[in-house]
Amino acid sequence: MTIKLNYISKLKYLLFVLFAVLFSCEDDVREVYLYKKGTIEASSTNTTIKGGETVTFTDSSTKVRAIKWTFQGGSPGASIEPVVEVKYTKAGTFTATLEITHVDNTVQKKTFTVEVEAPPTPPLVIPADALKIYSENPDFTKTAPVLNWVSSNQFVIKEVATEGYENAYRNFSLPATPPATEAKWAMAILQFVNFTDISSYTYINMAVRTTSTGKIRFRMKDATNTGYVEFDATSNLYGLKRDGSWNMVKIPIADYKKQNPALDLTKIKDILVLRSVDPEDVRALNNYSFDFDHIYLSK
């Protein structure tokens, strides 16, 4: 009789423990989620454009720790922003690459192909009474005396064979990494070999291409006196835009005289002097580059 009672007591105890465990676990139930890896997602507004147009790239990836864009042939050439507007000025086929580092340190890449058509060639301006200064256009009827291109300080002057306003053109640019000892200013000169009378002309015209944000002066000089016009990056003065396309610039010669009445237009030596503007330090500017073509005087 005693044995049976002990057995029943033990059985009741076990049942009690079982129920206690079951009911105590009910409140501790947790949902379990499997880890999802990050994804790379990106889009572009257009990948077939004309030179001078822009493409906007947008990153919408998940679980991102770091973003890195690289844009071949574009400006800017790289970015770490999720949304980037990139300008393409030259024709060609280029790649745009997004590299994503996820929070788990895995890396994914996505590449876009951008097709850039050459911008339409601007119409050539060919006045019958023009005085050619620098041009490959065979329709000019008068040719200026012999000229020289002179790098006076820091500017590197080179002739580029293609993609000019006509074909070849002259490029004025600073070295990519000027030595720290170089001066903060830059200048280059297009000069007549002999003094030249330009007093019968009204305008100096030229095709200019640049994206530079630096201030710049176009100067003229006789034997001793200098007159100039000054351009900033936003005014589009005389038609000079900083959009990376060829633009015809037309400057009244009288404006050089207005700046310096002593300038003698009957004895011009330097017809175009490219000069940076103090106190701006050209060593801090990474896009101080100007292309010139189709320079002439007109009535």
Rank of each mutant, 00 (worst) to 15 (best):
L98P: 03
K258N: 12
S79K: 07
K241W: 11
T101K: 12
V160G: 07
T224I: 00
I253P: 06
S60R: 06
I133Y: 01
C25S: 11
T202W: 01
A144G: 15
K215W: 12
S200W: 01
V86D: 03
S44G: 00
Y35F: 01
G74Q: 06
E159I: 12
K36E: 12
V146G: 10
E280D: 10
I133Q: 03
L297E: 05
K87C: 03
L11R: 15
V107L: 04
Y165D: 10
R209Q: 13
A161L: 08
P252A: 09
Q72P: 02
N167L: 15
F94I: 06
K241M: 14
T162L: 06
I271K: 02
I268T: 03
D278A: 09
E115A: 07
H294Q: 13
V125L: 06
A180P: 00
F172T: 02
I295T: 08
A254W: 03
D255T: 08
V17T: 13
K250L: 11
F16A: 14
D139E: 07
F140S: 05
K267L: 00
V193W: 04
K221G: 03
G77M: 10
N260D: 08
T2M: 15
T202C: 03
Y228F: 14
E26H: 04
L124A: 10
N105K: 13
N148Q: 14
A66Q: 09
T113P: 00
G244V: 07
D255C: 05
W185Y: 11
V208W: 05
P279V: 04
S245C: 11
F23I: 12
F292D: 01
L285D: 07
S200F: 03
P252T: 08
G77N: 10
M248P: 12
E163P: 08
